[in-house]
Design a protein around this nucleic acid. Sequence first.
DNA 1: ATGACCGTCTCAGACGGA
Length: 260
Amino acid sequence: MRVITWNVNSLRARLPRVEELLTQHAPDVVLLQETKVSPEAFPHEELAALGYHAAESSGGQWAGVAILTRADLAIEAPTTELFGNPLPGEARWVEATIDGIRFASVYVINGRELGHEQYFMKLEMLEAMAARAADLKNEGTPVIISGDVNVCPRDIDAWDPVETAGRTHVSPAERKAFFEILEQGGLVDAHVQRWGEDTQQFTWWDYRAGHFHKNLGLRIDVHMVSEGLASGIADVRILRDLRKGSKPSDHAPLELDLTR
DNA sequence: ATGACCGTCTCAGACGGA
């Protein structure tokens, strides 16, 4: 099974690149973030023409998440509810079961600045995710929670510790909250399992100042995979080619191949 | 080259992003 997570930074603006992803990589499941689309404007027909259907949480101008899957795979029990989510109206969480796996696509609150009201809501959202992951573990369901967590889990996941020090995404509290999700949910950071602790690879680069070409980025997009599934991780790849070319997102897709 | 972005909304500029 092939699973891809991608913060598209507007689904409608990114449709040509989404088509490129679907046709060239033929994923079974795609977790999207920052679709920035209203429910009425969600491109169901365009995706159907590409052989995919979707469960979505769409909030209009900001945020928005979705789960796409091949038309021949059923989407079961979709929900946008996340108990304890401090901003339930902002379309940052969607879950559905596909092929016996409980998938969630998440776009974690940015946090703005350390100490900002939004920063504390970010920590709350990460805590809500940990509680949900613990519930799913207790149910014994295979789980894949993927998306833009807006946290660099380790020092090596940020291009410059000096530049990023004292800012969001790298604070000890954010990192602790991220690892609590793995711990409480019995989940594995698939990228780390595949590449180890000493490999530096990024999933996001600022549009400005040529950061992509200088490889000044962050690893903030992840696949969190339940331990039973994680033994079947065949490969994890960052699709940098989709960060290049015409009208790219500022994030690259993260591809996960499972043997099942 | 010593500066450098790109979406959303509503219509030139604010706002969000990380």
